[in-house]
Amino acid sequence: MAWRRRFVFACGWSAAIALAVAASCVPVRSATPHDFHASLTQVEVNRGDKTVEIAVRVFLDDLEDALSRRAGRRVRLGTASNFDALAYAYVMEGLTVRTAGGDRLRFVWIGKEPGLDVVWIYVEAPLSGELEGGTLGQTVFCELFDDQLNTVVVKDGKRNTTLTFGPGETSKPVQFAR
């Protein structure tokens, strides 16, 4: 798989270029309607079904961009036959949910729902422990855009909290507002 080789390449170089990158990324936001890098993730505990339900909203062009770079070819929604598989693998890599007991939740693909410029991705995991007291990370696109901002809203019944992840922020504790 082409993207794996590039992945390894990038890893090998990462230490060497770390300093240079820190000093070189220029956040440029032009005045286009959606040339900003943001994602939204809703994490909700479903006590009835004993599951954790997750909806991730990403900009479609960002996702296609990310998948294309990894696949080493043009990956477009609607034309790439394995789009879902690639999207699933990619999004799951960036999303980490660990329960208070330290279990990393394993998510099952539920589906995707494309809008005009965004796509919602739905995944689900069995609730193997409490989210509160555990940790959560959402680093989707952070390797591509230095202005990427990932917002995660976690809901457990009436309790909720919002976590925000910028580049370099990989994991945060989940603590509901009192």
């Binding site: 390449f9 990038a10 820190a22 990989t170």
Partner: peptide, 14 residues
């Protein structure tokens, strides 16, 4: 500007 995540940077990004 703050550092990007460097874990899985694609080649053309570098």
């Amino acid at each position: 500007s703050t550092a990007s995540t460097l874990e899985r940077v694609p080649f053309d990004q570098v």
